[in-house]
Structures are given as structure tokens and as C-alpha cells.
Amino acid sequence: MSGTPEKTIPADEILVMLCADLEVDGMLSSDQRAALSAVLVRNPRLKELYESFRFTRDPLARPFDVALTAALPERLLRTVRESPSPAGARPRTVRRSWASLAWLADVLRAPAFSPAVALPALAISVAAGWLLHTATGAGADARDPLASAEAQYALEATPSGVEVDIAHGARLKPRLTFARQDKAWCRQFTLSYQESLEAGGVACRNSAGAWQVLIETGLMAAEASPSPNSHLPAGPLPSESEGILDNVRSQLKQGDVLGPEEEAERIAERWKRK
């Protein structure tokens, strides 16, 4: 089942493409551009990819602009004015391209991802949020993709290893549960979108009972997991993403990862401490 070529595009390639497009469209701040440049200087492979993607926006697209400036042929104007049509439609205003990504600037400024962090972490955090934002629509709180009731319920009540729908095309699967040093419960999770992309993260339950994202990472082209029902982390995440999440967990964790029975107990008792 490991995939058609369409499913094996590396995550960083897609993320570099996203960054290149956001930059062309003026969606990155000067700080973000500087952070991106620093990453590209350190990583020639990513730089080469970035240049490919930039190239296909400009200069590649430029020759086509001749169609914008050339005089409109009379036959086209006549067609639009005179072709028969049934009556009935109403006009509406046109929204701007990329408008739904305006929140990205805020996400990129999140303290968890300083400019010193390498591109995979920086851009992946952006893309993971964007992924959910895309799935949940413009109305969702993009800075906290887990804010929806469905996502909250999934983290609150779903045993690790079980995947649930949280939005059109988006699914969340808790992977494991552990306690933070300050006694808050945290869950590592995977988000996936239409069987094509996956992102990982860690969310912790605050004193008010809401699950908040601590870190998002690991956007990748999804492949069939060899152990979808495993309680411990299932299919391997890409090494960089896995490393980031493991590192976060080891810094936060107090005690062991909960086993299935203990986790079921905590869920049943709505995460009360013993």
C-alpha cells in the first residue's frame, strides 16, 4: 500500500512550496522572511527546492501575462454580450486570493517557534495549522486548530489509537497520553486530511478542561500505517517530526505513558487526578 508517487512527495518539499508561495504573495513578514532565508542558507537542498517553486511563479508565469494586456478580440466580446442565456443569476463580490491564510503571520510569530528553529519545525507548524484551517473552513480559529468542539471531544474522550472525524475531511487520532510535570494531562495526536496529509502534535488539558495545542509538527504525505491500532506511536513519523515530538514529550513528561486501562479510567473520570 505504500503509495503511488502522488503520496510520496516529501513533507518538506510541500512546505517549502507553501513558504515560497506565501512569500510571493506578500504573506510573510520581514522577520519570517529572514528566518526562512537563514534556513535556506543552511540547507542547500531546501534552497534548490525553494528556487524551483519561486521560478514557477516568477519568471515562469510572466509570458502568460500577454493575455492580460493584449486587446480583447471582438469575437469574445460579442460572445459574452450576445450568447443566449436563461435568466436568473446574481452577482457577488470577489474575495482576495490567500485571504483565508491571513492568520499565518500570527502563527509564524508563535514563541514556540523562534527563528532559530530549523525550517522543518517552523514551516511544519504553519502548515499543520493551515491544514486544519483548510479542513475546518474560514470560520475556525486558525491559531488554535483544536478549538472546535469536535476536536476537543476527540481529545477528551477518544482512546489512543482510535481515529475520529473532527471536520470535513479531517480526522484526529490520539496516539498516547502522559502527565506533564505540573500534573496536567497531555496527549500526543495525529491529524490527517483526506488520506493525503498528516500532521502530529501534543495538546495538554488546562485547568478549565480545554485541550490546547502545545506543539504541532509532522505534516507529511500520508502512507498506510503498518500498525494503525497500536497504543504507542503507530506508524513512524518522518524522523525530524518524530524527533521534535519525542523531545517535547521527554521534556514535559512526568512518569510513564499511560497504558490502555489507566487511560480508559482517566477518560471515564474526565481526567480527574487520583
Partner: peptide, 30 residues
Amino acid sequence: GLSYKEAADITGTPIGTVMSRLARARRELH
């Protein structure tokens, strides 16, 4: 200059597929 989401809507293709195809096509063109 449309977004991936808009392209996905127009083509009726999942956004992940749009991004994968785009990445591949753009590298090929370059």
C-alpha cells in the same frame, strides 16, 4: 495566483493531492 484551496475547489481534487501534484509539476517545469 489562486490558493491551493481555491484550486482544490475548482478541480474537485483533495487539497493534499493538489499540493503533491503541484510540487511535482513545478519541479518538473523548473
